[in-house]
Design a protein around this nucleic acid. Structure first.
Lengths: 141, 141
DNA sequence: CTGTATGCAAATCTTTTGCAGACCC
DNA sequence: GGGTCTGCAAAAGATTTGCATACAG
């Protein structure tokens, strides 16, 4: 059922009911929830789960590399469990909505060593910002 | 002296002493200050300037396209006045430090219309994340 | 058992807002 | 002079923290 849970189990992650529901809620494609949304959905399955635990768990999943954190400019961060299929994001500057995109063209060139200034680069993110269809319409009417 | 101020004047921007010091503080290359840092430096030149005014002014400069806002993951956003020379950012995941980079092979392919899902795309950002030299050392020692 | 995870509430940090008074054009 | 900009202080979010208790392994 849950790929995410499966992988976590395999990595020896200590499993509690709270962690299980967080993983369940996040599992799937094109899921981009805020911490608060994760908490709300998790609470439907496990009413007593606390926000702090949701934040802790999300932070851990991000550290483990199982979930990607997407900043949406001022608004709350969103969490994307689709960490194992490289993709980029389209972010609406007005409502924060996110869509996954997989530009067919040139895959992201790594930063040449000469340009790294001593940094240890671990990820490259490409974010396309603009207005989603709904917000484009709202603003032009 | 200040290119930024020069351009703003040319655009008919209403000029007050507060706005002047904010523009002065931001002017230059490789400047990536947080709103709070801008406030602190501005306050050295004009002690009574308020945080609210700094936020207002920064927001306006971003709207005008004279300054770029860089998200640094949880930490406070940073403001980059170098908006007229396209470049990308290297961001340290630990301390939030930012460096400008200009990858030679332009990876900046526009998103093909078929991939836009009805979005009106206005900007493309590429962010390289990792650890800066200082943090790399701290963590390995 | 033992160490880690959880819940709660309060704290922190960043940014926004409302409003009366000040000041640029 | 009129409309915009400021400062202040308080509010609003989002996320983190401290600590006693509960629970997985």
């Amino acid at each position: 059922m849950s790929d995410l849970l499966e992988r976590l189990r395999g990595r020896g992650w200590r499993l509690t009911s709270q962690r299980r529901v967080v993983a369940q809620v996040l599992d799937g494609d094109h899921v981009h929830l805020t911490a608060d949304e994760v908490h709300a959905r998790a609470a439907l399955l496990l009413p007593e789960i606390s926000r702090a635990t949701v934040y802790n768990t999300l932070g851990e999943l991000v550290s483990l590399g199982e979930v990607i954190e997407v900043s949406t400019d001022g608004r709350a961060k969103r969490y994307d469990p689709n960490a194992h299929h490289p993709h980029q994001h389209l972010v609406c500057s007005r409502c924060g909505m996110i869509r996954d995109v997989h530009p067919s063209g040139s895959p992201l060139t790594d930063l040449p060593p000469a340009e790294r200034f001593g940094f240890t680069v671990s990820t490259v993110e490409v974010t396309y910002r603009g207005l989603c269809p709904g917000c484009t319409q709202t603003l032009s009417s």
